[in-house]
């Protein structure tokens, strides 16, 4: 795995990263996720706290708890396969809870080798699906995509709009191929 330098000088830090601690929830059952987690832990230097859930039920628990406690995650990253409830079920449940509570949708990044319905992203706002040929490549995509994730967080924070798909140009190329 190539080293990714997450260190930046002070003047390179975005306003979002330089302030209070931000939270990311990674829902992944894959063993490689621990490597990803250790990599993401470098984000702590950037005030990003990563919580790891090992299955869909635990992921939904952390999401519900964050809503209940009023300290929401800024980004959810989900990879498949997941036990108990799969990625699609997780997103559907989360969006239903958000609708019920009149909350804006959490931005979600899904990285899977599964084929989701073609209208999935249209049905679920603030959701981006990165499709990998297999779960191993999904792992490397997550690793390589960490900086993209951080960038997305910054962009999301700044604009408070929907996640721009153009931020993930490489994704579309991979899906098309």
């Amino acid at each position: 795995m190539s080293e990714i330098d997450l260190m930046t000088s002070d003047n390179q830090k975005g306003p979002w990263l330089s302030n209070e601690k931000q939270r990311v929830l990674l829902v992944s059952a894959e063993p490689w996720a621990r490597n990803v987690l250790s990599l993401i832990s470098q984000c702590s230097e950037k005030n990003i706290e990563v919580t790891h859930a090992i299955d869909g039920a635990q992921g939904l628990y952390y999401m519900s708890q964050s809503i209940y406690s009023g300290s929401p995650f800024q980004l959810l990253v989900l990879t498949s396969p997941l036990a108990q409830i799969d990625v699609q079920g997780c997103i559907e449940a989360l969006r239903a809870i958000e609708r019920g509570l009149n909350r804006p949708p959490y931005p979600c990044l899904i990285c899977t080798a599964d084929k989701l319905p073609p209208d999935f992203m249209a049905c679920f706002p603030q959701t981006l699906h990165l499709r990998a040929p297999n779960s191993t490549q999904a792992a490397s995509m997550v690793s390589a995509g960490i900086l993209q994730v951080i960038y997305t967080l910054q962009a999301y924070r700044k604009s408070d709009d929907q996640i721009a798909e153009s931020d993930f140009k490489f994704t579309r190329n991979q899906e098309e191929s």
């Binding site: 039920a57 952390y62 519900s64 708890q65 409830i85 079920g89 449940a93 239903a96």
Partner: peptide
């Protein structure tokens, strides 16, 4: 839903979180 159990899992996770 893909499974019958999805709603049950989601409800219990929501209860635990709340």
């Amino acid at each position: 839903s893909q499974r019958w159990s999805d709603i049950a899992v989601a409800v219990r996770a929501l209860e635990e979180g709340f």
